[in-house]
Simulated scan of single mutants.
Amino acid sequence: MQKDQLFTRRRMLLAGAAALGAAGTAGIVVAAGGEETGRTAAAPVAGPQARQALKPSAFRLQPLTGDAPPRAVPRRLKVRDEPVLRISGGGRRMVLTFDDGPNPEYTPHILDTLAKYRVRAMFFVCGECVVENRELLARMADEGHVVGNHTWTHPLLTELDRHEIRSEMESTSDAIEDAYGQRPQWFRAPYGAWNRAAFQLGAQMGMEPMAWTVDTTDWMEPGTDTIVDRVESGAAPGVVVLSHDAGGDRTQTVRAIREWLPYLIDSGYHLTVPARRA
């Protein structure tokens, strides 16, 4: 897409926002172009699934109804038994992912750093944050980032019934489409807690499930140096890195990416995103 077209789309999205007034497991190897190439065993990884489920806070909005039909009919996918954990495609390729946003205090700084080094990433967003920060999704679209579904209120899916899971997922996809311009093609379960319903519903909505290989542990606020060390020591071809741009104080995350991103690039890594399906 040409640059002027991108800016036009962003202006349209921003205009819409103003008008509305708001807005581990075994790994499945997927090629950068989205083609499944096989399976590879991987040890369980630590992550935010170790945290207790967050109680809805005062600012959290109630999920929109999941009963209404989607605006666009998604392409149904094969139901997986496990989430995507790594990518392949040759060379020293890695994927950077950020969960729980967007957040107006931290997400812009992360986007600035990615833009400085001309790197694209994936953002798994929560619907309640999307409606308050639609302009950030418009910017993600303009700058070529991939936006995935991370539910509306970040619940523990294993404690919800099927109807509640559908509502969380479907309402978030609607909000993403409104702000980003396209429905998401990737889904990540909060806390890394997957169940059969999440896999089935995600496939029905045209979304592949994605987990991660390396957890930066930034959600624990362990210190900038620890976050940097986890990324640099965990770097390897096919790795999916988990970070967060919301859900707490992410000052350490913002500082750390300014250190580890140029290190990865200087080390010969190509930071990529999965290709969108036609």
Rank of each mutant, 00 (worst) to 15 (best):
A175L: 05
R92E: 11
R196I: 03
D266P: 04
N149V: 08
Y117D: 09
R258P: 01
E105V: 13
S233R: 11
R86H: 03
R118L: 08
E232D: 10
D142E: 15
W194I: 04
L64Y: 13
R120I: 01
P155L: 07
H109R: 15
E35N: 12
Q52M: 12
I176G: 00
T151S: 13
W219A: 00
I87M: 07
M220W: 05
F123M: 04
T213P: 07
A32L: 15
A235I: 06
T65W: 10
A138W: 00
G181C: 02
K78P: 08
R166V: 13
K116N: 06
F199Q: 03
D225L: 05
E135A: 09
S267P: 05
R250N: 14
K55N: 10
G148V: 00
Q204H: 14
R118I: 05
A278M: 12
L64W: 13
S173H: 07
Y117N: 12
A256I: 00
Q52N: 14
E36W: 03
V228T: 07
D225W: 05
P74D: 11
P63N: 07
P184M: 10
F59M: 12
P56D: 14
L261Y: 06
H145C: 01
T8A: 15
G47A: 09
R51V: 08
P63W: 06
C129K: 12
G234K: 04
R9A: 01
T8R: 10
V45R: 13
R76C: 04
E221I: 02
